[in-house]
């Protein structure tokens, strides 16, 4: 905004800029011009003073709070007992009906736990019994989130591979779906490199990843390549290949199978789940883990997965490049 623009504005037009002025959200030039106006305009200065007073009052009366000690302990206990961080903890022990069968290991975490003071509810309830429903809640979350026919398998894999990777398959799937959702939001970017040409997308990842994802052209089958994106999942940078079908988006996440993982390479078959209305498919091939996520119908996503696994032999993939 130029100085002329500010100078030409009426006080009422400038009023909406006063809060951003106080918040430090105006660029330097605009800020300077507005400050000049404020020096010679009592009306705007008064408005500014009111805004400033309001900010002071809010900060005084809504101060930052300290988390109560018992909340801190509850959170720590819940984190440490979460199935995804404690693979040895079978989900069944998390049922509130069987608190006595909860393994010692899950209960001996905060040995110095004092009796909570301030909260009656806390004081009247042994902390272990309070923690158990949270475990149940976590398990229900998993169950609801899984909702698919491979839930048992996925969960077992989470428990089995959690020890080796530190990250359960459920957690990875959650992260994959969360990343898919993020990529669709207007404030985020869907692709870092926009191209329907796989010979543009594939080299784009060079130097950004320590592996080279296979990029297939499936435009002839109704899945157009939109582009690629660098993402971060399961504790490492991964390739996100973005395909479109109609108005729907498919994110295909690819990264190398962790050689240290207990189940590395053992999941060549495709497993499928639905989560929060999104279909998710996972498989390993060529040393890579693949996750496909989309809101397209399950049969469409299955078709997509089949095509990625066995790309059609067509001019698009087999002929020498025309350019």
């Amino acid at each position: 905004m130029t100085s002329d623009a500010i100078a030409a504005m009426t006080c009422d037009q400038l009023a909406p800029m006063l809060d951003p002025f106080l918040d430090g959200e105006l660029d330097a030039a605009t800020r300077r011009q507005l400050a000049e106006h404020l020096e010679r305009c009592p009306r705007c200065a008064d408005r500014l003073a009111r805004s400033r007073a309001l900010g002071v009052a809010i900060r005084e009366q809504c101060p930052a709070l300290s988390a109560p000690d018992d909340l801190r302990r509850r959170v720590q206990a819940a984190i440490r007992q979460d199935p995804s961080t404690a693979p040895s903890l079978s989900p069944s022990v998390a049922l509130p009906a069987a608190p006595s069968s909860t393994p010692r290991a899950a209960l001996d975490d905060p040995p110095t736990l004092p009796h909570p003071r301030s909260r009656q509810r806390s004081a009247s309830t042994p902390w272990a019994r309070r923690a158990v429903p949270w475990l149940a809640a976590a398990t229900v979350l998993l169950a609801v989130g899984g909702g698919g026919w491979t839930l048992g398998t996925a969960h077992e894999r989470a428990l089995a591979s959690g020890a080796a990777r530190g990250i359960g398959a459920d957690a990875v799937r959650d992260a994959v779906v969360a990343s898919h959702l993020r990529s669709l939001e207007a404030t985020n970017h869907l692709v870092d490199v926009v191209s329907s040409d796989r010979h543009t997308v594939k080299p784009w990842f060079d130097g950004k990843l320590d592996f080279s994802p296979t990029v297939v052209d499936l435009a002839g089958d109704g899945f157009r390549l939109i582009g690629g994106r660098l993402d971060y999942l399961a504790g490492r940078p991964v390739a996100a290949l973005v395909y479109g079908r109609g108005r729907h988006v498919i994110n295909l996440f690819v990264w190398p199978i962790d050689p240290g993982s207990a189940d590395g390479g053992a999941h060549a078959a495709v497993t499928g789940t639905a989560m929060r209305g999104y279909n998710v498919r996972q498989w390993d091939a060529g040393g890579m883990t693949h996750w496909a996520v989309s809101d397209v119908a399950a049969p469409d996503l299955d078709a997509f997965v089949r095509l990625v696994r066995q790309p059609p032999v067509s001019p698009a993939t087999s002929a020498p490049e025309p350019r």
């Binding site: 959170v75 990250i167 959650d174 971060y232």
Partner: peptide, 30 residues
């Protein structure tokens, strides 16, 4: 606490949020 205006609700929500955060943590990009 300020969003829910109830201390006990706030505590439950925070604990709930931490469990969710734990699950989403693999997707945290730093």
């Amino acid at each position: 606490r300020y969003l829910l205006r109830d201390d006990e609700d706030a505590r439950d929500a925070v604990q709930d949020a931490y469990l969710r955060a734990l699950r989403y943590f693999p997707g945290f990009r730093g």
